[in-house]
């Protein structure tokens, strides 16, 4: 009996060593987040990912496992980001006739938009006295996760803070578009989708697919192009500005 009691005590530690618990927690939090999002009538200011991440953080905090244990178990989910990013090529192809019609505005808007997406926050963080490490972590905030992780390796910074920055940026971008687009009289779904993808990476792109297939395709395009452009431009900018690099 004491043997069983002892095993019961070490059960959480044992389960935390396998990917099972972490995977179950992630799926559960994601589904509950999506469910709650429906229940509270899909508010634009609080996308499902924000609810799901807060729930997940709460679960990890309540349960006798640490974030490091959780991450080790759930990291394999992030490997699926690779094929998922490749999969965006499908809607991109299906909506290509829309993109062909607007290739010129897309190519003109992209460089300033992607540069400013990084520059506004870098400048603000610098001005507010954040450490160089923090500034570097915030720079790739509008870039899709697989590319952003690569940028962080190049210019330095904390991967955890960078990923947190992605969450906040994605959420704020989604919110900002639902606030600003009607006030500026922007109704073109292609423009809204592109803005969501350039600024809000995967979170914005998922939101754009909720609007329409065309918006989703423009978001995929904006996300991909911003990723490519920023991956080239940020390391060069870091060198030119003589920011510390690892």
């Amino acid at each position: 009996m004491t043997d069983l009691a002892l095993r019961w005590q070490t059960l959480p530690a044992h389960l935390a060593d396998t990917p099972l618990l972490s995977t179950a927690l992630t799926l559960f939090a994601f589904m509950l987040g999506a469910r709650l999002f429906q229940v509270i009538k899909q508010p634009g200011w609080c996308p499902p990912i924000l609810i799901a991440s807060s729930l997940l953080a709460l679960l990890i905090w309540v349960l006798p496992i640490g974030y490091q244990d959780y991450y080790q178990g759930a990291a394999w989910l992030m490997l699926l980001l690779g094929p998922a990013t490749v999969a965006l090529g499908v809607p991109l192809y299906q909506q290509f006739h829309h993109i062909r019609a607007l290739w010129r505005p897309v190519l003109i808007t992209l460089p300033p938009a992607a540069m400013l997406a990084a520059a506004y926050s870098v400048a603000l963080a610098w001005w507010l006295g954040a450490s160089p490490n923090v500034v570097a972590s915030l720079a790739p905030k509008s870039v899709t996760a697989p590319i952003a992780l690569g940028i962080t390796e190049q210019i330095g910074g904390s991967a955890s803070l960078m990923m947190g920055g992605l969450l906040i940026t994605g959420v704020v971008a989604t919110l900002a578009i639902s606030l600003l687009a009607p006030r500026l009289g922007v109704t073109d779904e292609r423009v809204i989708g592109f803005t969501l993808g350039v600024n809000g990476h995967a979170i914005g792109t998922v939101r754009a697919f909720e609007i329409s297939a065309a918006a989703g395709a423009f978001a995929s395009l904006g996300m991909g192009l911003t990723g490519i452009f920023t991956a080239i431009f940020l390391p060069i900018a870091w060198q030119l500005l003589a920011f510390p690099m690892p």
């Binding site: 974030y67 959780y70 803070l161 920055g165 995967a202 697919f209």
Partner: peptide, 30 residues
């Protein structure tokens, strides 16, 4: 895969809730 794109970044994203003390004094700037 596209529908679950945001779920796939959750393991990394949720780390921000556990950074607390490391970034004391910089949260407002962030």
């Amino acid at each position: 895969l596209i529908a679950f794109l945001t779920m796939l970044i959750m393991p990394g994203v949720v780390g921000v809730f556990f950074l607390g003390a490391q970034l004391a004094g910089q949260w407002l700037a962030i």
